[in-house]
Amino acid sequence: MANNFNSRKHGYGNFSHNTRGRAVPGAQRSPRDRAHQAVSPYVLVDPATIGRLVATAAPAAHGHVLVPAAGDAALLRALAAHGARVTAYEPDPAAAGRLSARTRDVPGISVLRADFTKARAPREPFAVVAAAPTTAPAILAWCLRAPALTSATLLVPQEYADIAADQAAPAFTRTLTDPVPAEAFHPTTPTPCAILHLRRS
């Protein structure tokens, strides 16, 4: 079991939520910059990987799907085309505006200017699909606290995948896919990722 994952070694600077006694990267940035960094600096751009993510999420992709770190809207469009009612979260005002403009012509997509990890979970059944490896632990922790969550399909750093799967037991069945190459993101991620699919047992 990969219990010795070092997020700093691999370039994912905010896996650890315990920042007591040390400087927080980006602490001198503007609120807008910190809001954008809080979502993910990496955008999933590979169409094949987006297709794999949506296919792995099915049949949840036919219902209400929450998407943190929606990137350039390609994932939102793919989920909507699959039949999902999509709610995207983006705390950065400019990025949220771009997402709204890029999805205005697609029925079933709404964009909220909000931090997903601070949002209130819906009371009705829903799923989460996330392509944000940097904030995977925070997203997973939010998912595990949501009683109405039916499934979560998360792109996580490969070194973190086993840890994340263990954290989800025993409430969820867990499936890990083959690695997703670092080149599937822009900019390229420090290490490959994996798709972790959780389905409530």
Rank of each mutant, 00 (worst) to 15 (best):
C143Q: 02
T49H: 07
T117G: 06
F5E: 15
G13Q: 11
H197I: 01
F116L: 00
A152S: 01
D33I: 09
A152G: 04
E159A: 07
L155I: 10
L112P: 00
S7A: 07
V128I: 12
Y42R: 07
K9H: 11
N14H: 15
D72G: 12
T153C: 14
R104L: 11
R120D: 12
E159T: 05
E159G: 12
V45W: 01
A114L: 08
A152F: 05
E183F: 04
R85P: 02
A23T: 13
I163P: 01
P91Q: 02
K118T: 11
H62I: 07
P107M: 08
A2V: 13
R120G: 08
I139G: 00
V180E: 09
I139D: 00
P170R: 03
E183D: 02
P192Q: 09
P47S: 13
V129R: 13
P25W: 07
P107S: 06
P192V: 01
T191G: 01
A61E: 13
T117C: 08
R20H: 06
A95S: 10
A132Y: 06
A78I: 08
R34T: 05
T49S: 10
C143L: 10
D162E: 15
R102L: 10
L44E: 06
A165G: 15
Y42A: 13
A119I: 09
A58R: 14
Y160K: 01
C143Y: 06
L66R: 10
L149W: 00
P147F: 09
G11M: 11
A121N: 09
P133H: 03
S151W: 02
Y89F: 15
I163H: 11
P187V: 08
T173E: 05
P190G: 06
A55F: 07
P147K: 08
Q28D: 14
D105S: 13
G71M: 07
K9S: 12
P187W: 07
T153S: 14
A101Y: 02
A23N: 09
H62T: 09
P190H: 01
A169N: 03
P157G: 13
P179V: 12
N18A: 03
R20P: 07
